[in-house]
Design a protein around this nucleic acid. Sequence first.
DNA 1: GCGGTGCATGCTTTGACAGGTATATAACCG
DNA 2: CGGTTATATACCTGTCAAAGCATGCACCGC
Lengths: 106, 106
Amino acid sequence: MASTFEVLAEPARRNLLDALRIRPRPVGELVRLLGLSQPGVSKHLRVLREAGLVRVRQDAQRRWYELRSEPLAEVDAWLEPYRQLWSDRLDALERHLGDTASHENE
Amino acid sequence: MASTFEVLAEPARRNLLDALRIRPRPVGELVRLLGLSQPGVSKHLRVLREAGLVRVRQDAQRRWYELRSEPLAEVDAWLEPYRQLWSDRLDALERHLGDTASHENE
DNA sequence: GCGGTGCATGCTTTGACAGGTATATAACCG
DNA sequence: CGGTTATATACCTGTCAAAGCATGCACCGC
């Protein structure tokens, strides 16, 4: 089973997640939204499902796909130690702006 | 040039970033840390460089690679609307725990 | 200058993956 | 039942990326 990062590497799959983030949708609707072939969409959905990023609810002949955010939380956790880097940088910017403001009449 | 997500799909490259997050390092050190061949590491570093995730500082025959976090901030931004999903879920959990606690003697 | 070190690049093979078309499966409707 | 809708899977093809090995290139110390 592919890692969450590998799954997210494919733009079409990120688009699928973006669509499912709004609300669950059946496959046909995703096909229309993405403009891919139906088999193409089904195959991406399979990858997403096997990675735990979506789950399916069957409703007669329709299959409603919905988002599962847990794997994304892991990505967020990986990112966590890096986040500090740009917040540090923002802090520095803010200090700089503060300095500039306090010197702005010199 | 590959997207940041594509670049992060490769585990070795995430390992490189994790190593460079601590401090800048020359290639040889990264080779030792990752246990890959030197050309392999160099090629991954090239991909990281072309995606803007690292930059190089040349020091005589050594090349010091250091992290550039900007592209990671973009990933973080993509993740942003999803983050709400698990914070919502945490909120719900906390409410549930609160309810449970208030009923725990029933 | 010369051997040695540190690193990049070229080449080749191999395997994975995406997209398409055609087809299978399953459930609905009349 | 028969046709139709909704979705999945099989198969094929082209593309691309990763890994290994060999080699090139730049700089160092002597």
